[in-house]
Design a protein around this nucleic acid. Structure first.
Lengths: 250, 250
DNA sequence: ATGGATGAATTGGTCAGGCCACTTGGCCAA
DNA sequence: TTGGCCAAGTGGCCTGACCAATTCATCCAT
């Protein structure tokens, strides 16, 4: 299956250029970039094109845009998309082990400090989960939110971020396909029950129980994941209207 | 320590709205969004604002934009590190708290599985540390290596990477300047002793002692860091012009 | 009837110009 | 020295126009 080769948009080219200037140190960390109007003039493009390029870079975390002040090279491209020395991802089992260690510690900490408003957040998540057990895509999103909500109880942005990131690193296209096969109403219902056990332990302010419930949940999640290996998989396509028409012919 | 509260840009709000429509399933995977002009009309904003919002979402991996064809909900937001809920960066105390939770859990796990070759690695690190107590830059590198070596005992690449990343996130130019003031032979010698206590607990395969030793080390590290804040300082900003002026006055 | 070519319509990409909100720095008065 | 005010600069958002790419409908040839 082939898709049209997409010519490179100008704002992407501009973003690439600025990104490489940051990477080479030509633009130093913390340094202020020239104003949009000046960049547009220097690079001989329109100002909206510059804006669009800068938005790309900001979403990537390479720059920080401040209204009225200017655009600054981010202090540290923390957790960046393209980390060249980084493996594409660690093995899924390795990630699960890491989750087990980190998230058990977080659950333990959360149990020591949970309030009723924290528990209400978890309860709402459980309700949402109950209504989407037939929709794996939505369930994955809510599953993720449950885990980051526990980190949220600790109230530490770094932990929230790590929890989300480590969850997302499994979210490869491959894993998604796998999930669509091995996750279904049964497995999501079980996951939800495990979530409830975690919720209950945290609500009881019982760190040891919370840790154990989280470990149980992740162990079982790993088991479900292991059982899912073995399916034959196909490639992916994002579908356009022409593709839909081609599909119709098939 | 305060930083300016940044009002929410319109294109970010639009991106948030579309993102939540994708998360709730209102916009299905693979579905084509309305054209830019129509979205602009429906959401009562300008078309460039829509474009900017869509660029945010494309960089995040949630949509795929095709010229002349339309905008499609991505099959899956694959491994897109730019997390919308992410703060620009976490405060140093927040990172220390996160380290405390994560690294104590890792130390606990390491103590359960350490072998003599693992301990030899820690011993070599301690020797290296002893020879560079007068050189803060070198000491920081060896300090980092000690912490990642503990994660290495668990033998999990994800944990090693997280340990390194979370350590590095303190390594802002600001922090490095601070370290050059408050870290010296005395503090590095104390850190080394604390490292030794961690090493000993891990060597004894005593998880509780390892956890306690690590927590003690990080608590004291935090105390040393806090004491460094006795100085008159500017906020955690990326260096705006106002901050530069206040600096000049100091 | 079917397939290919062509042109129109639609859609995203880029530009120019304008105005508003916010930030910063300088100056002056208390 | 500190606080207030103002001007200049900067990012944010808008309107309108035109260009490039894609899709779809129509027409023509086989």
């Amino acid at each position: 299956m082939f898709s049209a080769v997409e010519s490179r948009r100008l704002y992407r080219q501009v973003a690439d250029q600025i990104r490489s200037m940051i990477a080479t140190g030509e633009l130093a960390v913390g340094q202020r970039l020239p104003p949009e109007r000046e960049l547009a003039e220097k690079l001989a493009v329109s100002r909206p094109t510059i804006r669009e390029a800068l938005i790309v870079l900001e979403v990537e975390g390479l720059v920080h845009i401040r209204m009225g002040s200017g655009i600054y090279v981010a202090r540290r491209h923390t957790v960046q998309p393209a980390q060249p020395e980084r493996e594409p991802f660690e093995g899924p089992f390795e990630l699960l082990q890491a989750r087990s260690i980190i998230e058990c510690a977080i659950a333990e900490e959360a149990a020591q400090r949970a309030t009723s408003s924290h528990i209400a957040v978890l309860d709402e998540n459980l309700q949402q989960m109950a209504s989407v057990v037939n929709d794996t895509d939505a369930a994955l999103g809510i599953d993720r939110a449950f885990h980051t909500a526990i980190a949220g109880i600790v109230g530490n942005a770094a932990l929230i971020r790590f929890t989300g990131e480590i969850y997302d690193q499994r979210m490869t296209p491959y894993f998604e396909k796998l999930a669509s096969h091995f996750e279904g109403p049964d497995s999501w219902t079980r996951a939800m029950e495990e979530h409830r056990a975690i919720r209950d332990a945290i609500a009881a302010n019982d760190p040891a129980a919370a840790k154990q419930a989280m470990r149980t949940h992740l162990d079982r999640s790993q088991k479900r994941f292991s059982e899912g290996f073995g399916e034959e998989l196909f490639g992916e396509d994002e579908g356009g209207r022409a593709a839909a028409r081609r599909n119709a012919k098939i």
